[in-house]
Amino acid sequence: MLDRIFLNLALGFLSLIAIVVVFGDFIQPHDPLAQNFLSRDEGPSAEYWLGTDDFGRDVFSRILEGTRLSMTIGLASPLIAAVIGIGMGTTAAYFGGWAERVITRITDMMMSFDPLLLGVLVVALLGPGILNLAVAISFALIPSFIRLSRASALSVRQEGYVDAAIAMGRPSYSTILRHVLPNISGPLVVMTTLWVGTAIRLEATLSFIGLGAQPPAPSWGNIVRYGVQNIFGSPLPALFAGLAITLTVLSFNILGDALRDRLDPDRAAR
């Protein structure tokens, strides 16, 4: 029962986020980049709902704009990682041999780094910026996708219907697409959902340490970054951006757990 309430709250919050991402331009009361030195570090008011930062920019508008950027990276990175990781993982599992050995060794190597560290490494190599940030986060998530999809695909590979497809002359790529992928999709969908939360957190972290979105473009991470630097001026930017991150990550985690329960084959079969 409590699960249901939390799930509904999470879904509600995520729908709100979706609206902000799509219709952000129409909702923002102010230009998120417009500076106004007459109203620096103000508290909440009818004009500025969440106050202003030390450049006099509207915190509410900046958080809305940051949502678009953070969510774009948060969604795009896991999806890119999923496509590449699942492709490599299922191919490795399906064909075996040296390709599998190479892929698993590389995965093991990458898994020995913390995703954050891996992200830092990639951004350090490519230089900061939004695109590089997305690449870095995808890169950090790929090994987990390889590992999960390979493990799932290995067990599906043993199933009679895969042998059946091969024996009836179905080409390998088609067998993977038609028989392997649909049957490993459950856990992968769950993982993608959970990783969206992680990607948002990674974006925030990398931006927070200055490796992400560059000012003046707002992302949740750098709003927190500059908010913390100016915490005695006004605590509101850091507070609300931090809240947005926490709630979003939490919502994706709740959604992921619910999906896991729903897609669990044992429960689905009743």
Binding site: Q158, E159, G160, Y161, A164, H179, P182, N183, P265
Partner: peptide
């Protein structure tokens, strides 16, 4: 007969 047919 349970593994030989694709459940999906």
């Amino acid at each position: 007969p349970f593994s030989s047919l694709d459940p999906r």
